[in-house]
Amino acid sequence: MPKLLIDVIDDVGNCLLFVREVMFTALTSPCSFASICEQIWTVTLQSLPTTALAGFFVGAIMTVQFTLQITTFGALGYLGGLSTSGTVREVGPLLIAFLLSGKVGAFTSAELGTMQVTEQIDAIRCLGANPIQEIILPRYLGIIISSFFLLAVGLVMSIFGGMLLGLVFSGINPEEYVRHIPTIVNKFSVANGMFKCLVFAFLLASICTYKGYSARGGAKGVGRAVVSTAVLTMVGIVVFDWLTSLITDTAMNVVLGNS
């Protein structure tokens, strides 16, 4: 078997063992509520401006794209619903995940990697504390919980952006824009978006904390950890996007088929 393949399998296996340890720690010796809140605050603050800005423009882009398509069918009234549905189901969670990957993922990986190579993590262990409980778990949960806040902000901003562009570009007034949103964006769309958001956040938190925690070899090792975090999360998000789309579509067909 080629060495590269063995290394990949080894890395995936170690990452899964690491996640299992994080889960076990979360259940048996959870971290303090204050430390989780601190991480939520940090992650949210780090990504809020970019998420809001990106959300606004995603809504705007969706509106422009859908306008070109649905004008042909004379269904411009559904512009807000279609645009928002696309954002809630797909683009929103994907966008949040990419933004978090670039900002929070890289930051967390670098921070933990630096702690590892400067022996701070060993110092925690030597002081009789569990580093998973002290530094990994708060960051892990912080990333997952904040991604939902950021998703909400991103979605609100995308509706706002879409509404504004709808008014300017297509001449649809805001009332008309939001009127069909509840018709097209149903509870399945929201559940679908939240499920994707959860999966992506879980994936990102796992990769960036694992890569940072397992960094070795000084500054170069930290650099390697950050790069592999960026690459793996991007690839992982795309792969899991396909997988979650498959799962949610199948689940929706089953539920709708039975009802």
């Binding site: 400067t118 701070q120 060993d122 110092a123 925690i124 030597c126 009789g128 504390a129 569990n130």
Partner: peptide, 17 residues
């Protein structure tokens, strides 16, 4: 963990948080 509580280690680098 309990064994480490008996020991104190000063690292090559200060390793302060």
């Amino acid at each position: 963990f309990p064994v480490r509580r008996m020991c104190g280690m000063v690292f090559q680098q200060p390793a302060l948080f």
